[in-house]
Design a protein around this nucleic acid. Structure first.
Ligand SMILES: [Mn+2]
Ligand SMILES: [Mn+2]
Ligand SMILES: [Zn+2]
Ligand SMILES: [Zn+2]
Lengths: 149, 149
DNA sequence: GTACATAATGCGATGCCTTCTCAATAGTGC
DNA sequence: GCACTATTGAGAAGGCATCGCATTATGTAC
């Protein structure tokens, strides 16, 4: 599991700083129940409720930074905004099946996909950050409904 | 290959109509060279240059509709806006390796991923539209540069 | 071919997620 | 503690995408 001290070490490597805001954000995602994903706005509200508010600007900046570092995963689960979750290695690593109509999201695991992704990145000389299989589909419930699009 | 008449048939099934604009958009994507992806704005400019302009609203509406039908794929290749390409079955089906710093995109094929995706969707009773493995990484060139984030 | 019902288009206005600007604050190394 | 400068917070700004509505035009029935 990624720790606060390893975050600090990685930040310092690049001449960056560990702030209470970054520590808080990391801890929120580390303790997030399986299957839950947070948007920037979700996180903002959650932190306000917890009594340790962080400005939306700072949240956006750090979600982006931590994704670029490979600590978080940036997911497109719904239209219009991103969702985030902690990026974990196998066997916790997983993928998403999304209904394009109701946005219902189901997680599933498949070890071989991460292996293939890592292999592909390595073959091209890339430094892997995240590997996500996203299945866009229509769920059984929405197939029965006669809603447009 | 998906044809104009099959588009017409699918639209009619739902009580929708085939318009010259929809036909044009489909043909643009069918003739797009391998590895090219278009944003809504790209498509808008391209059509204006070709002398058959289509309003941006109509482009947005139809890109979304055709993605929801499984005709096009909606891709997150860069920050801030979506890219589209035609959705093809094996052996043309492919995936994307993206550098998060310079947005360089490389396509790669892997038949087993689509098979796994189709299997997962089927097992859950979902109607598959698209299955995309996206690898976020840092390309060799960007690894050498000392750019922030 | 004509007429009708209504889906689709085009235009501008609007919405909303995200980024930007910049003064104030606060980590880090010495 | 001090200097340096990365980071934060607040509001303004940007930009992709959607909405509302009058107008146009497709598909169907006659
Ligand atoms: Mn997840
Ligand atoms: Mn492609
Ligand atoms: Zn659904
Ligand atoms: Zn790069």
């Amino acid at each position: 599991m990624y720790t606060v001290s390893s975050l600090k070490a990685e930040l310092h490597e690049r001449g960056w700083r560990l702030t209470p805001q970054r520590e808080t954000i990391l801890q929120i995602f580390q303790n997030l129940p399986t299957g839950e994903h947070l948007s920037a706005e979700d996180l903002h509200v959650l932190l306000q409720q917890d009594g340790e508010p962080i400005s939306l600007s700072t949240i956006y900046r750090n979600l982006k930074m931590m994704s670029r570092m490979g600590i978080l995963r940036e997911l497109e689960l719904a239209e219009g905004h991103k969702h985030y979750e902690i990026n974990q290695p196998a066997p916790y690593h997983h993928h998403h099946l999304i209904c394009v109509r109701c946005n219902k999201t189901t997680e599933f695991k498949n070890d071989s996909i991460l292996k293939m992704g890592a292999k592909t990145a390595q073959k091209e000389g890339y430094h892997l950050l995240d590997c996500q299989l996203t299945i866009h589909a229509i769920c059984p419930s929405c197939q029965r409904s006669i809603l447009p699009i």
